[in-house]
Structure formats: C-alpha cells, structure tokens
Nucleic acid binder design. Structure first.
Lengths: 161, 161
DNA sequence: CGTGAAAGCGACCGGTG
DNA sequence: CACCGGTCGCTTTCACG
C-alpha cells in the first residue's frame, strides 16, 4: 500500500531517474534516509520495475510508427504462445496487445520508413499464419510518455501525512 | 553519426540505465574514460533523451489500456494545436498520434477499469468537439518495451572498430 | 583512445533522539 | 522520521602516452 509521499516520489522518478535521493527527499519534504528506504522498498515491491534510458526515435532512424491490427482464426492457447514468442524476437514491435472486439491483436511497430515496414511485414507473415492484417500509419507522434497517471493509486489512509 | 560502439552502449542503457559506466565500458570493450565521454556526447546530442523509472501498471492501478480512434471534421492547424494542448493535460493519455487513413488521431489511454475509462471519456468530450470516437479495449499487454530497434542506425563507416 | 590516479559526490548503513 | 556520522563505490576530471 502506498501513501502520498510514495506517490510524490514515483512522480519524480518516472519523469527523471537521475535526480539524487537527497534532492528527491527535499522535494517531497523528507530527509534522505527514509526517502532512500522508501525508494528501496518501491523497487523490492516491484512498483518501480526498472530504470532505463529513453532514446530519440529520429536519432536511431525509427521515426515511423505503424499500428498493425491482426485478425486470426487461430484462437488456441498454443497458437498465442507461439505468436507471442515470435513477436518477442522482433525488436521493431515495441508494443503488443490482445484486444477485445473485432481486432484480435494490435501491434505498435517502429521503422525508418514505409519500405522498411514492408520488409518487416514480409518477414513477419513468412513466419506465421495470420488470416487478416491491416496497417495504419502514424504521421506524427504528438505525445509519448512512459509516465503513468498516479491519481488512481489507492492511498493508504493510515499515513495521511 | 554513430558507430558500433555507440550502438552497443545504447543497447545496454536502454535496457538498464543503472549499470555503472565501468561495467558498460567492459561490455563494449572500452575503458572507462572514453566510454564515459561517449555517453556524455550521446546525451548532449540528444540521442539519449532522458533516464526514467518505469512503473508497474498494476501497482499504480492502471492495468487497462484503451485505444481511442478519433475522426474529426476539424482539420485546421489551430484546432490541432488546441487539441494537442488539451491532451497533454490528461495524464491518462500516454500516447497520441496523428494518423493517415480513415482515422485521424489515435490515443492510448491507461485507466484502472472500464468505469474509469467512461469517466475519462466524458471529461474529454466535454472539453472539445470531436465528431466520431471509437474505443478498443486491450485485454492483455503481451509486450511493452521502451527499447527502440538499433538495427536501422546508419553506422559511421570511418570508425569500423 | 588507453592508463592511472586524484577528487568529490552520492549511495548505503549504522546509531541516536 | 529527523539527524548525525561513517564507509564505500562510482562518477567525473585530470595528466600523460
């Protein structure tokens, strides 16, 4: 269970993980040691999964995002397991969801351009049977954040601060 | 322009940004100082945008992802600017794309459950005129990574390692 | 770019009130 | 939790080859 201080800490670290503990502590109104202990606990409890560097898509030549909607007639557990494993091998696929509704699966794929997407697409369908695929191209990424909203956290009322 | 060493460094840091420079250096076959200098330059050049903590969606009560497709009849620059600004105020919207094809915009929204999505949706349409909206719910997030594929980087041939 | 080495900060871990 | 030390490791910067 988290309280307001934990939430403040998380909101800072999910925006910038390079900020020293002492500075985080100051911002949330805590001294260094207990703040450090909280961060440690947040990592142990798996609330903080990892710390990563975010790269500029342009700099690594992957400025085009394509959303791939997949409809399949294969609905077995086994097929999904194999499909998921396959997808994991494609670094171009950065997100992969099982959907409700008309579409069964949705992929977000990042590539340099349309040609590269076509090549990716051919490599994909060569590896697995998919009945119906449709691709939607993003012209512009207007917003992208890894920061999750923290307003839905159930706060621990015993520690109201 | 990047070379193979830069690419190796990036692949390490975009998976785990907590690895000490000395360890990164060892893995890419460099000594600490030049490796540190490269990382510094990658940050200056904006290849590395930032370092962030990734949180567990379940822990912050946002395990449901909804993809929102928007069709509008407003296609002016001004309308888009206002719309983008509005979206930026909604932390539930973690991704936002301008699309080609039938759909004009695509949002990825994270919320605790369907009820919360409905509340979000009402707040959104109360703020701006949107002609047609359709929502697709993700049942499961099978893959999610912030790591971009590095195979499309144009390598500097003058530094073949 | 490599090495070695200095200097300083920050993480980490005690203990006390 | 605040506060005070303390150690240790890592970052950061230097001089030099």
């Amino acid at each position: 269970m988290l309280d307001r201080l934990d939430r403040k800490i998380l909101s800072i670290l999910q925006e910038d993980a390079t900020i020293p503990v002492a500075e985080v502590a100051k911002r949330v109104g805590l001294s260094t040691t207990p703040c450090w202990r909280r961060i440690q606990k947040l990592e142990e409890d798996g609330v903080i999964l990892r710390r990563v560097a975010l790269l500029d898509p342009r700099s690594v030549n992957t400025k085009v995002t394509v959303f791939v909607s997949i409809v399949t007639n294969q609905h077995s557990e086994e097929w999904l397991r194999r499909f998921a494993e396959l997808i994991r091998e494609f670094p171009e696929v950065v997100e992969f969801y099982r959907m409700s509704g008309q579409v069964d699966y949705l992929l977000r794929v990042v590539v340099p351009d349309i040609e590269a997407y076509d090549a990716f697409y051919k490599r994909l369908i060569a590896k697995i049977e998919i009945s119906d695929v449709s691709s939607a191209f993003a012209m512009e990424q207007i917003k992208y954040t890894t920061a999750l909203p923290l307003s839905y956290i159930q706060l621990d009322k015993d520690k109201p601060v």
